[in-house]
């Protein structure tokens, strides 16, 4: 278990370092960084490379947003194998539906409870 935690720390931290180097060099904004890493995950999974990384590093590869891209591609590909074109179109979002629904639900609930506060730093 300690080994798996260590792997998650190193791989997850490593992915964030790539992102930070990108931000430092190009001054990309938040939204663009998220999109770039998501696309990176999609493309890597297109070559079948991201699932082995998740098997190796666990949360280290599945928690970064690139893991979300991998889920989308995997979902679409697996559904396409079973259901053809219909699966291709619906499989991606279906696989990611859990995460997206949780985000929307909690976004709503939190917005009802909390108010924005001023930054002091």
């Amino acid at each position: 278990m300690v080994i798996s935690l260590l792997k998650a720390f190193l791989v997850g931290g490593g992915i964030c370092v790539i992102g930070q180097v990108l931000i430092n060099l190009t001054h990309l904004t938040n939204g663009k960084i998220l999109v770039i890493f998501l696309l990176l995950g999609c493309v890597l999974e297109g070559f079948g490379l991201y699932t082995p990384l998740i098997e190796f590093a666990g949360a280290g590869a599945s928690v970064p947003i690139s893991g979300f891209g991998c889920v989308l591609v995997n979902g679409a590909f697996d559904a396409a194998k079973n259901e053809g074109v219909v699966g291709l179109l619906s499989g991606g979002l279906a696989a990611a539906a859990g995460g997206v629904s949780v985000v929307i639900l909690f976004g709503y609930i939190i917005a009802l409870i909390f108010k924005p506060r001023t930054k002091t730093k």
Partner: peptide, 10 residues
């Protein structure tokens, strides 16, 4: 950005 968004300031 929205106030609660965590961003690194330039």
């Amino acid at each position: 950005y929205p106030l609660e968004l965590g961003v690194l300031r330039s």
